[in-house]
């Protein structure tokens, strides 16, 4: 099978992640459950970005916007006494998709550096909007009054239950995006990335397909935002800071664009490395920076490409 090795890497990753809570309990290191949960939440965001970046060729430098909007949607509803998780998360995804539709409608008409700058500008706008929203903590942020409630079905206050929920969602998101990029719809956005004049000449207008991909990507990232706010239980505009967009972008590039599984690997390596290095020295960025540069220079298809040695999906 063409994607055989990549599927095995993914299965291995999932099994590894599934083994973390019991292993952490055994070692008496509950902190790792927390760290890996954060990794998986960012992995969801990175996979969503891979859909438009890797497969669609749209370099969104503003994916933190959807993380932020997802988190704000959950918190704002909680402030007004709506704690129902289904409602909150649906609102997070819905609001992110609406925002993505607005940003996408403008940015997808451009390409290259203009696309990057427009997505960045919108996200900066939202960041400053977050700072100015004093009702929801403004610059300092605010505590999430209560985690999303799922009627006793699952308790997000329980670190392990929450952990497996995130793992389950990550697997679903990866399978969903894989399915999507292999569908007729996915073939159009990949074709448009690979060769736009040819794509137009055979009769496709890429714009509506790209916009739809952008909106789906925003929605998935909004879900990651809803998870992240339940994870940190603290809302802050920093969620939407441009460096956060950069982090997500880097996870995709580090793990391997247009591979769906690569970004999961990228999130894992980036966040675990960041954590390990920052425990070791406060100047950890001096080490992480050159490492990232080396990966980009010498592993064109990212760390994933080294593992499965397959051509990316194009």
């Amino acid at each position: 099978m063409r994607h055989g090795r990549r599927a095995i890497v993914f299965l291995g990753l999932v099994l590894l992640l599934a083994a973390v809570p019991p292993a952490a309990a055994l070692l008496g290191q509950p902190f790792y459950v927390d760290l890996l949960r954060r990794v998986m939440i960012f992995a969801i965001a990175a996979v969503s970005l891979d859909l438009i970046l890797g497969y669609g060729g749209m370099v969104s430098f503003g994916h933190a916007a959807y993380l932020g909007v997802g988190a704000y949607a959950v918190t704002i509803l909680a402030v007004y006494g709506v704690h129902n998780g289904v409602l909150q998360w649906a609102a997070a995804v819905g609001a992110s998709m609406l925002l993505a539709a607005a940003i996408g409608a403008v940015s997808i008409r451009t390409s290259g550096i203009y696309f990057i700058m427009i997505t960045l500008a919108f996200t900066q706008m939202l960041y400053y909007l977050g700072i100015s929203l004093d009702v929801y903590g403004g610059d300092n942020g605010m505590r999430l009054p209560m985690r999303s409630q799922f009627g006793g079905l699952i308790d997000l206050g329980n670190g392990t239950e929450f952990y497996y929920l995130v793992l389950g969602l990550l697997v679903l998101v990866v399978l969903f995006v894989r399915r999507l990029v292999d569908s007729r719809f996915g073939m159009v956005i990949r074709a448009a990335k690979s060769n736009e004049p040819r794509t137009r000449a055979i009769g496709f207008s890429p714009y509506p397909y790209r916009l739809a991909a952008f909106v789906i990507s925003g929605g998935i990232c909004g879900l990651a935002g809803a998870l992240l706010i339940n994870h940190t239980a603290y809302l802050t505009p920093d969620l939407m800071h441009w460096t956060r967009s950069g982090d997500i972008l880097f996870m995709v590039v580090l793990g391997g664009m247009a591979s769906t599984v690569g970004p999961v690997l990228g999130a894992l390596v980036l966040l675990v490395l960041e954590n390990a290095l920052s425990n070791w020295t406060e100047h950890w960025q001096i080490i992480l920076g050159p490492f990232l540069v080396l990966v980009v220079l010498f592993a064109r298809r990212g760390l994933g490409g080294l593992l499965w040695r397959e051509e990316r999906d194009g």
Binding site: R179, R184, M187, I202, G203
Partner: peptide, 19 residues
Amino acid sequence: ALAVQAHAGHSFRFWRAAR
């Protein structure tokens, strides 16, 4: 197949594998 697809109605079909 992409050229065939371009003339086989809209491509907002998200589920079945095109290949």
